[in-house]
Measured scan of single mutants.
Amino acid sequence: MDVFMKGLSKAKEGVVAAAEKTKQGVAEAAGKTKEGVLYVGSKTKEGVVHGVATVAEKTKEQVTNVGGAVVTGVTAVAQKTVEGAGSIAAATGFVKKDQLGKNEEGAPQEGILEDMPVDPDNEAYEMPSEEGYQDYEPEA
């Protein structure tokens, strides 16, 4: 019985440690998101679009440190934060509304985080759909 109880105690310690790591990862992701939003706020009209992409990228980098179902929630929060940063930029006159959601080359930025393969159960990952990809044929 002692062996059984000791095993359960060790398992509990492992769960607590994993929860603490997840909590730490979420806190880091939130900190990076805040950094990115402050970065966007300090940019001029020309830099705002690039700044919004930076927020998304920093958040995406930190999301990889967070495991399990938390990833889905962090990704949703990050996307809403990026959308909010863009709205703030438009409201303050840093950028025109028609410039939001495009990178410096004018290509749409939507789907940055949505296409990231995420499995809350950590069982399997699927690649994003290939609808947006084109076949590449090298020139002879």
Results as ranks from 00 to 15, higher is better:
V49E: 06
Q24T: 07
S9K: 15
G106H: 12
P120R: 10
I112Y: 06
E139C: 12
E57M: 11
A124G: 14
D119M: 03
P120V: 04
K10N: 06
M127I: 10
V48H: 00
Y125E: 14
T75I: 15
Y39N: 09
G41Y: 09
S129D: 04
E137W: 05
A18C: 15
E57V: 11
Q99K: 08
N65V: 15
S87N: 01
D115V: 12
T44N: 02
T81K: 05
V66M: 11
E139M: 12
A53V: 14
M5R: 03
E110W: 14
V52A: 10
N103G: 12
E130Y: 13
K6E: 03
V3Q: 05
P120M: 11
V82C: 13
E131D: 08
G41V: 05
N65P: 03
G84D: 10
G36Q: 04
V63D: 02
V74C: 12
K10A: 12
E28P: 01
Y133H: 02
A29Q: 04
A89D: 04
A11S: 00
A69P: 05
K6A: 09
P138K: 09
N103S: 06
G67A: 08
G31I: 13
T75F: 14
E13R: 02
V71G: 03
V26G: 00
V118H: 14
A56C: 12
D135P: 10
A27D: 03
K12N: 01
K12E: 00
E57T: 11
E130G: 03
E130C: 07
T81S: 03
P117T: 12
A91G: 13
A124V: 14
E104L: 10
V49K: 07
T75D: 04
K45L: 15
L38S: 01
E131H: 12
G68N: 15
G31E: 03
Q62N: 05
Q134F: 03
D98I: 14
P117L: 07
M5W: 02
V37F: 07
G84F: 04
V37C: 09
I88M: 09
V77L: 09
G132I: 12
V16D: 02
Q79D: 07
E126Q: 14
L100E: 12
E130H: 13
N65I: 08
G51F: 01
G7E: 05
G68Y: 09
G73T: 13
A27C: 03
K60W: 04
P138Y: 13
T22Q: 00
Q79E: 07
V77S: 02
G41F: 11
G106T: 10
A140S: 13
I88T: 06
Y136D: 02
D119L: 03
V15S: 00
V26D: 00
G73L: 14
V49R: 13
L100S: 10
D135K: 11
N65W: 11
P117M: 09
K80C: 07
E13C: 11
V3R: 15
A30W: 08
E137Q: 10
G51Q: 02
V48P: 14
K96E: 10
E57D: 06
G67W: 09
T92N: 04
G84V: 05
D98T: 07
G25H: 15
K34I: 08
K6L: 03
P120A: 06
A76C: 15
V48W: 06
A107Q: 10
A91T: 02
V74F: 09
G73K: 11
K32T: 05
T22M: 14
S129W: 14
N103H: 14
D115H: 06
G106S: 09
E46T: 10
G93L: 04
N65S: 01
T59W: 15
Q62H: 06
K96I: 14
E61A: 09
S9F: 15
Q99T: 10
S87R: 09
G51H: 01
K10F: 00
V66K: 06
I88W: 06
T44R: 02
A56R: 10
V37T: 00
G47T: 13
V16H: 14
V52W: 08
A11P: 00
G47W: 07
E57H: 05
N65H: 08
G73S: 05
I88D: 06
K96P: 15
E130R: 02
T92V: 08
A76H: 12
K97R: 07
D119F: 09
A89C: 10
A27R: 11
N122I: 07
E61P: 05
P138S: 01
V48L: 08
A107I: 07
M127K: 13
K23I: 02
Q109N: 06
L113I: 14
E139K: 08
E130F: 07
V71A: 09
A89S: 09
E61G: 01
T59S: 08
M116S: 09
V74G: 03
V26A: 03
E126I: 04
A30K: 06
P138Q: 13
K80V: 03
F94N: 05
L8V: 03
S9I: 14
A27K: 15
Y136M: 13
E83S: 09
H50E: 04
V40A: 07
Q109S: 05
S42V: 06
G7V: 14
T22Y: 12
K60F: 05
P117H: 04
K12W: 10
T92Q: 12
E35K: 06
E110Y: 09
A30P: 02
L100Q: 07
K60V: 14
M116A: 15
I88Y: 13
K21G: 00
D119C: 07
L8W: 15
G106I: 05
K97Q: 03
A30R: 05
G14Q: 10
S87H: 09
A29W: 08
V37L: 06
A17Q: 13
I88G: 03
A85N: 02
G7Q: 09
K60A: 09
Y125R: 04
G84K: 08
K45W: 15
V15E: 00
P120E: 08
G73C: 11
A29F: 01
T44C: 04
S129E: 13
V37K: 01
P117E: 13
G93Q: 06
F94Y: 11
N103D: 10
A29I: 13
T92M: 10
P117D: 07
G41C: 03
A90Y: 12
G86R: 12
K97G: 11
E131G: 02
A29M: 06
G84A: 03
N65Q: 05
V66E: 01
S129H: 12
G86S: 11
T75E: 09
E110P: 04
E104P: 10
V3Y: 03
A124Y: 10
D119P: 07
E131K: 04
K21W: 04
Q134P: 11
N122C: 08
M5A: 02
H50A: 03
L113S: 13
E105S: 13
M127R: 14
K12Q: 01
G41P: 00
V118K: 14
N103C: 13
K10L: 03
P138R: 09
L38I: 05
